[in-house]
């Protein structure tokens, strides 16, 4: 599904708040994402690995990336995949012949990037899970609740956290997170 930018609206209209040298929050509008289900070790799983260019990590909370895709492991047979490739095309054979499920969920959530030296401080105002680098290193991901909104949090790089939030909760989460930047900006 290509984005027709004339007609498409993202939940937060690409809003941006704060400063990169401190903490910045912005919506990355129209980010592409997919929900992939496949049994590890199955034919469908193996074909998906080939299409993605890496082995889908089978441990919940881990991620793997290639140039085009990143896969976040949300369950033993469940990955949230973001990226710019034509995943349906790449997986068309697997979809036709094996038991996997691929669902375009690009609009189901919107993507927020929280960056800067105070990114984790701001996130910590609402995120109850362990943010210590020892427990949530770069590459780690987790599903949970952030300011009462269902989210997937991904520590994508140093001082950068990506939050995928259910679209209907986006405005609420935006209000909560930007409010939490008050003492850092």
């Amino acid at each position: 599904m290509m984005v027709n930018s004339e007609y498409a609206r993202s939940p937060l209209s690409g809003a941006q708040h704060g400063r990169d040298d401190c903490v910045s929050i912005k919506e990355v509008a129209f980010s592409r994402s997919f929900d992939l289900r496949a049994e590890p070790g199955s034919d469908g799983y193996n074909e998906a690995n080939l299409a993605l260019g890496f082995v889908l990590p089978a441990i919940v909370g881990k991620s793997a990336s290639s140039e085009n895709f990143t896969a976040l492991c949300l369950g033993p047979d469940w990955w949230y995949i973001t990226g710019t490739g034509d995943l349906f095309g790449e997986l068309s054979h697997a979809l036709a012949t094996t038991h996997i499920s691929l669902v375009d969920v690009s609009a189901q959530r919107t993507k927020l990037e929280i960056t800067g030296p105070h990114a984790s401080d701001v996130l910590a105002h609402y995120w109850e899970q362990d943010l210590r680098v020892s427990h949530f290193p770069v590459g780690a991901c987790s599903q949970g609740i952030l300011a009462k909104a269902p989210v997937i949090v991904w520590h994508c790089c140093e001082n950068c956290y990506v939050v995928f939030v259910r679209s209907s909760f986006a405005e609420h989460l935006w209000t909560a997170l930007t409010d939490a930047t008050v003492e850092y900006l």
Binding site: D35, R37, V103, D104, V105, A107, Q108, R166
Partner: peptide, 10 residues
């Protein structure tokens, strides 16, 4: 497999 698409679709 079940996947929520409540907010994927308007």
């Amino acid at each position: 497999y079940c996947t929520s698409v409540t907010e994927q679709i308007s």
